[in-house]
Design a protein around this nucleic acid. Structure first.
Lengths: 252, 252
DNA sequence: CCGGCTATTATGTATAGACAAATTAACCGG
DNA sequence: CCGGTTAATTTGTCTATACATAATAGCCGG
């Protein structure tokens, strides 16, 4: 005999690892409706016999399906096809510089205003911290191919990011700089629509009272808020797009 | 001796499985910046010695970290702390009925229009399929506590969902019904801002030309488009919120 | 000095066996 | 028939080992 992996019975040379084969096979049965929600998935030892492999291999496939939320596993009871999940999608909000460059457009930005000040009540509210300390307030306009792309209004908590005080933000805009310099642990996004006021209209070069997409983001490091930012996009020119597959990271 | 699991050396009774302990420990070192991006993670056999366990256990922890994108693994080279990831967040777009009920408000809906027709060119474009076949076009208004909440304009591909033809949509609105009945494999979302036209303004009870948040969703089953839907929310009253932790599903 | 071969190394996948924990099912005494 | 104890089942975790695979490092001949 030559070599032949582990000499699996019926599959001489499989391009896909065994556990992924099993995983996809089970996933297909669930997606196709062959196994309806609530129905029982064969026990590990049964699948082991069916697929002619060890229990660990079956376990790896089943655990992945469980982590993806396609099945529910309970000791002694067995595994069951999960109920249809509420819709959930992965929205990729890139760093603005990366976002524009990814579209193959020329990127440029300009600092509109920059102010270092004692934290006001409003600042504290928006950062969701107790007042006190200093903040750096910065407004930036980003351009794609020399067209105004988005207006950024940002508050940075200088108690957490003192280095920002001495950063001129010449090569990188504040958002990109922060991403590179400060590790963050939590983020919150709020997306809504609003009408352009005079300032936004002028800065984006759009008519006053046209629709804008506003994204607000708060970023934390542990319990401390690092920064709050509000990005205002022209609503008709910008849109957020996302794709989603249930059992998301399963089929990479 | 009584029993004592596997008699691990220094940890008599651990409430957490070993691989999770290791995983969290490594994760903490990465998050804290102790291991900077690009730096090398000890090899499996080193960690095995450090944590006093088998290589498979270490492997499980490292594989999970790799899947979560915290480290990059390469054969022969070793494992390395990943570069800071582009911002990515999980946006939860619930089924409307569930969304309203979750807010503790009374839910009601009404069918505004319903038309079964041969697929028009526009329909085909929006469903992204080649023309031909029948579609069901439905408009629905959803209420929360008797206030207009969102307007839904939907196209359903009757070639894929013939059952919709005979469904009166009395107990459940089309979206909820579809979620319960039809398994889907892919979805695409597009979010943008726009101004309310006369119809939307009337239906939502808001001034004409006020800002609206529009969410369009296309849902597939394999290659076939099941449905296209456009949800129009009042921009000032509705917002999408999401939280995100890097290394998301790691800390359940 | 360059290009290709070989040895080494780290990860990837898989096996078989073992004990632990949880929960259901069966049983049995009152 | 009820309630509690015991047994059986299923998943969860872990070990030790083995071979596969990819990629680097080093060697060696031209």
């Amino acid at each position: 005999m030559a070599k032949g992996k582990f000499d699996s019975v019926s599959d001489p040379v499989s391009p896909l690892p065994r556990y992924l084969e099993i995983q996809r096979d089970l996933q297909a049965r669930i997606a196709s409706g062959q196994w309806v929600p609530g129905s029982r998935v064969p026990a590990e030892h049964e699948l082991q016999a069916q697929y002619h492999c060890s229990r660990m291999t079956v376990n790896k496939a089943l655990s992945a399906l469980a982590k993806a939320g396609l099945i529910i596993r309970r000791r002694r009871s067995g595994s069951f096809v999960a109920m249809p999940r509420s819709q959930e999608t992965i929205l990729n909000i890139q760093d603005i510089k990366a976002e524009i460059l990814a579209k193959g457009k020329a990127y440029r930005f300009e600092i509109l205003t920059r102010q270092e000040r004692a934290m006001t009540t409003d600042d504290a509210l928006q950062l969701r911290v107790t007042p006190g300390g200093q903040v750096l307030a910065i407004s930036v306009r980003h351009f794609a191919n020399e067209f105004p792309f988005v207006v950024e209004d940002r508050l940075m908590n200088l108690a957490i990011v003192p280095a920002a005080r001495d950063e001129p933000f010449i090569v990188s805009p504040p958002g990109t700089w922060l991403l590179d310099v400060v590790p963050w642990t939590n983020a919150e996004h709020v997306i809504h629509a609003e009408l352009a006021d005079q300032r936004i209209a002028t800065l984006l070069g759009i008519p006053k009272k046209s629709a804008c997409l506003a994204i607000e983001r708060r970023t934390w490091q542990g319990d401390a808020t690092i920064t709050w930012v509000r990005l205002t996009y022209p609503g008709d020119r910008h849109q957020l797009t996302s794709h989603f597959r249930p059992g998301g990271p399963l089929i990479p």
